[in-house]
Simulated scan of single mutants.
Amino acid sequence: MPDRQSPISDQSGPTAPAASGAGAPVRRLRPAQLLFEPQADTPEPERFFDLDSITDPAELLLRSTELALAFRAAAERATDFQAVAAAQLADPRRFDALSPTEIADRVEWTPDYAARMVEYGRGLLKQPRGGEH
């Protein structure tokens, strides 16, 4: 038999303490109303890593070159991860192994490219990982 002194929560929000008396109803607290409408943020002008604000051509060349190299490195690393994932999905030891055609369909590759990525990924998986002994 439940204790009559403790209010039963229906998980619909916080409860206020019951009024004095054992059988008093439990009062629910409501969230406070907004008294103002929050200002809508005006969209900022589009910036590309603040390159458009650099006026010195030498500095612009240096910064844009740094970004291009960083993006190339990131794209190469992402491609390696794609290849590893493709190789893992095509692993014949998996009960749900996918064919290169099925992998190609998932990521909009050609079946030939998917097959090459699977082979590349298998090569990456065979390499010892750096930093591990």
Rank of each mutant, 00 (worst) to 15 (best):
L98G: 05
T15C: 07
S20A: 12
D56K: 12
A58M: 13
E76Y: 03
A22W: 15
P31Q: 00
E37V: 12
E132C: 08
F81V: 10
T42N: 09
A97Y: 05
F36A: 12
E46W: 05
P7F: 02
D91K: 04
P7H: 06
Q127N: 07
I103V: 06
A68D: 01
S20E: 09
Q39Y: 11
P31A: 03
L34T: 01
P43N: 06
A75L: 14
I8F: 14
G13R: 07
A75P: 03
R30K: 14
E76S: 08
P43H: 05
E66D: 13
E66Y: 11
L98Y: 10
T79A: 15
Y120Q: 11
G21C: 05
D52F: 02
F48T: 13
A40Y: 13
P17I: 01
P45A: 11
P14Q: 03
A83E: 13
L62M: 07
D10V: 02
V84P: 02
A74F: 06
A22E: 08
S9W: 04
I103R: 11
T65N: 08
S9V: 00
I54K: 09
Q88G: 10
G23Y: 14
L60T: 02
P111I: 10
L98M: 15
D91Y: 02
L61P: 00
L34Y: 03
D56L: 06
P45L: 09
Y113Q: 02
L98C: 14
V26I: 07
T110S: 07
D52S: 07
S64F: 05
E119C: 10
P57S: 00
P45D: 11
P31H: 01
D56Q: 06
A78P: 02
A18C: 13
L67F: 04
T101L: 01
L124M: 02
Q39D: 15
A114R: 03
L61K: 08
P14T: 05
G131S: 03
S64K: 08
V118F: 12
G131P: 02
F49C: 07
L60D: 01
Q88V: 09
D3L: 08
T42V: 13
T42Q: 15
T55F: 09
A75R: 09
F48A: 12
L60H: 05
G23A: 15
R116Y: 05
A70N: 04
T65E: 13
A19C: 02
A19E: 10
P111M: 15
A97S: 07
R63V: 06
R27Q: 06
A58T: 14
P7L: 04
A83P: 06
A22Y: 12
T110G: 12
V107I: 15
T79N: 14
Q127A: 15
G23E: 15
A85M: 11
T101Q: 09
R4F: 08
A87Y: 00
A90R: 02
H133A: 13
V107K: 06
